[in-house]
């Protein structure tokens, strides 16, 4: 049991190395960018409601904002895209979604590489 208490902080410390944190942030950012791509597409096709698109955009903004370890430019680019999607959903303009879907897709690809 005592060994476990000694090992645990070491394991935790190993987990939270800056390298790993940055990787994790990139993964999460990519996941949200992909979410944006699919969401924008689904919304433009009328598969999901405006309300859902809006609230998801809000949640995404919240989550992406938390990614302090992410490259600032990449984060701002994604935040802008979410903001645009949220406003489009508020204004009920699904036409704006197609280019946004492409933006998100590009963002997702960029953070993948």
């Amino acid at each position: 049991m005592k060994v476990a208490w000694l090992v645990l902080p070491a394991v935790l410390a190993a987990c939270s190395s800056p390298q790993k944190e940055a990787n994790e942030a990139r993964d999460t950012a990519a996941s949200w960018a992909s979410t944006g791509a699919v969401l924008a597409r689904e919304w433009s096709r009328g598969h999901v409601t405006d309300a859902y698109t809006r609230s998801t955009a809000r949640v995404a903004t919240e989550e992406v904002n938390k990614l302090t370890k992410l490259d600032a430019r990449a984060r701002d680019a994604q935040l802008r895209a979410w903001d645009a999607l949220e406003r489009a959903a508020e204004a009920h303009e699904p036409a704006a979604a197609a280019p946004l879907a492409r933006t998100f897709a590009a963002l997702a690809k960029k953070s993948d590489s």
């Binding site: 993964d27 999460t28 949200w32 979410t35 791509a37 699919v38 598969h47 999901v48 998801t56 993948d112």
Partner: peptide, 17 residues
């Protein structure tokens, strides 16, 4: 699609797709 499920909000997409 590369969507990890970090929040519940992402899950409805699985059926709408």
């Amino acid at each position: 699609a590369g969507i990890g499920s970090d929040r519940y909000e992402q899950t409805p997409l699985m059926l709408s797709m």
